[in-house]
C-alpha cells in the first residue's frame, strides 16, 4: 500500500475545494484599446469572436522574452481563461507574437511563417529587441526590429516585458476586436 502522501489524487481532490491560484486580470489601458479599435475598423474582414490563437516566433531573442511568454501559461496568469491560446502552427493563428531584434539568419523563416498565417492577422512585437533592435541595433547580423520585415500592429516594450505587461497587450487586442464581433451578430 502506498502512503497517501505519495499519491496525486488526494491532492487533486483538495484543489477542487480551494480557491483558484490565478491572479486577477490586469487593467487594460484605454488609449491602447482605442487605437486598436480604429485599426480594426479599417480591416473589413470578419473575425473569430472573443478568442485569439497566438503563434510565437523567436526572431533572435536572448530567450529572456520566451521565459516570460511561457510564464503566461502558468496557473497564476492562466492565459487560456481569456480565450487566448498558443498554437503550434501559424496556419491556425490570428496573432504572430514575435521577439528578438530580427537576425538576418531568421528573417526568411519569419517571413515564411507570416505568409502561412491567414489574413487578417495581428503582428505583435514583444520586447525592446523586437521593437527596434534594442541593444543589438547596428550589428551586422540584425535587421533592427520586427518592423523591418512585417507591418507591426502592437509594440510591447520591456527587457523582457513582464507577463503582466504581455497580458495587458494581448487583452487589448481582444478588447479591440470585441465590438466588431458583437456587430456581426
Amino acid at each position: 500500500m502506498q502512503p497517501l502522501r505519495r499519491l496525486l489524487w488526494p491532492r487533486l481532490g483538495r484543489s477542487l475545494f480551494s480557491p483558484p491560484l490565478s491572479d486577477p486580470a490586469p487593467a487594460v489601458p484605454d488609449a491602447v484599446v482605442q487605437a486598436l479599435v480604429e485599426r480594426l475598423e479599417e480591416a473589413a474582414q470578419a473575425r473569430l469572436g472573443r478568442s485569439l490563437s497566438i503563434r510565437q516566433v523567436d526572431a533572435g531573442s536572448c530567450n529572456g522574452c520566451e521565459l516570460e511568454i511561457n510564464a503566461l501559461g502558468n496557473v497564476l496568469y492562466d492565459l487560456e481563461r481569456f480565450g487566448l491560446r498558443f498554437v503550434a502552427s501559424p496556419r491556425h493563428a490570428d496573432v504572430l507574437l514575435v521577439t528578438g531584434p530580427l537576425t538576418r539568419n531568421m528573417r526568411q523563416a519569419l517571413e515564411r511563417t507570416a505568409a502561412c498565417t491567414p489574413e487578417p492577422k495581428w503582428v505583435v512585437a514583444a520586447g525592446d529587441c523586437a521593437v527596434d533592435g534594442g541593444i543589438f541595433q547596428g550589428s551586422y547580423a540584425v535587421e533592427g526590429g520586427i518592423g523591418a520585415a512585417l507591418p507591426v500592429d502592437l509594440l510591447i516594450p520591456g527587457c523582457p516585458p513582464t507577463p503582466t505587461q504581455l497580458l495587458e497587450g494581448l487583452l487589448a487586442l481582444l478588447a479591440a476586436q470585441a465590438p466588431k464581433a458583437a456587430a456581426r451578430r
Binding site: 533572435g60 537576425t103 523563416a109 547596428g138 551586422y140
Partner: peptide
C-alpha cells in the same frame, strides 16, 4: 546559428560596464 546577433562585435570597443549588458 539562427540567433546570431553579433554580440562579440557589439561588445568590442566598449567600456566593461557597457559591454556587461
Amino acid at each position: 546559428g539562427y540567433l546570431h546577433k553579433g554580440s562579440i562585435g557589439l561588445m568590442l570597443g566598449k567600456p566593461a560596464a557597457v559591454a556587461a549588458r
